[in-house]
């Protein structure tokens, strides 16, 4: 990796850490997700800075940013856009919805009906939308950060498993550390800080980073290890279903991105282990109660698989 890319990564993380205090690991995870061309799911109670994180990333990367607040009456057209009849030309013209942005924040995605959810999720997967027989590509890069309240809150439609699979990573922000929170309380409003943020890298640098991720070296032994991890979730009776091949590819892509952020040109088992809970957490469901496994269950899974 050229040193310039390296410094871009550091700059990005530093700048974001100024806004979202005490969450450096989460910032790095979000960045990893972005440069691995994946979509990010942030799951947490309101007010923990989910929106701020998404907004800060968009500003720092110089991406067009759109926020969609999901509600139970939101319709697919509200996201994708509608065709409007134009009197002057007597034709229908497609008016793009908020999804036509480089970074889309889908706030509280589990408050919308499944129909609306799946409209977004299909757009995420295909990176294009089809309206009135027309196929329209979404901007490049296209990055969705969805936030969701923990599903036990009232009035939510939990995302179906098949659609959760489309999020590369899921992270929790959680409450900040004491020191970080004290600083947060003392300093000026985050909104004002966001206004003053300037992009630290250009768009084509970001694409360089995305390309660099794909060139990270993955040893055969590491592929074996990833397979062993996938396999154990499939053999394990504690889970309803195991991880899909897409999840396996995702795990490798995420580990590649993480190793790049860590400043290496090759992937280590530690990278895989670090990403595994974030890749597998939202994809696996316990047989006992249908919920996602807790962090401890995932790390004990990791402990059981010896490095090949």
């Amino acid at each position: 990796m050229p040193p310039s890319l390296r410094s871009h990564i550091d700059d990005l993380i530093d700048a974001a850490s100024q806004i979202i205090l005490g969450k450096q690991d989460e910032i790095k995870l979000a960045l990893a997700c972005l440069i691995a061309r994946g979509h990010l799911l942030i799951e947490d109670v309101p007010g923990t800075g989910k929106t701020t994180l998404a907004h800060a990333l968009a500003r720092l990367l110089g991406l067009q940013f759109q926020r969609i607040q999901f509600t139970s009456d939101l319709l697919p057209a509200d996201i994708l856009g509608v065709s409007v009849f134009e009197r002057e030309t007597s034709t229908f013209r497609f008016r793009p919805g908020p999804v036509f942005a480089q970074l889309v924040l889908a706030d509280e995605i589990n408050r919308a009906t499944p129909k609306t959810q799946s409209a977004l999720l299909e757009a995420m997967e295909e990176r294009q939308i089809t309206a009135d027989g027309q196929t329209l590509p979404l901007p490049e890069p296209f990055f969705v950060i969805a936030t969701q309240n923990p599903s036990y809150q009232i009035g939510t439609f939990p995302l179906p498993e098949s659609q959760l699979d489309r999020f590369l990573l899921r992270i929790h922000l959680g409450y900040p550390e004491r020191a970080a929170e004290l600083e947060l309380l003392q300093s000026q409003s985050r909104r004002d800080l966001l206004e003053n943020l300037h992009p630290v890298i250009a768009l084509d640098r970001l694409q360089d980073l995305q390309r660099a991720v794909q060139e990270q070296i993955v040893a055969g032994r590491l592929i074996d290890y990833v397979y062993a991890l996938l396999d154990v979730t499939r053999q394990n009776a504690d889970f309803v279903t195991g991880l899909s091949p897409r999840a396996g590819l995702g795990l490798l892509a995420a580990a590649r991105a993480w190793s790049l952020i860590e400043g290496r040109d090759h992937v280590l088992p530690e990278d895989v282990q670090h990403m595994f809970p974030h890749v597998a957490g939202h994809r696996l469901h316990r047989t006992s109660d249908g919920r996602n496994p807790v962090a401890e269950e995932l790390s004990s899974l990791l402990r059981d698989i010896a490095l090949p």
């Binding site: 280590l268 530690e270 282990q273 698989i305 010896a306 490095l307």
Partner: peptide
């Protein structure tokens, strides 16, 4: 070394 412990850890 634990069986699942990578070299950096």
């Amino acid at each position: 070394r634990a069986p699942a412990e990578g070299p950096l850890d």
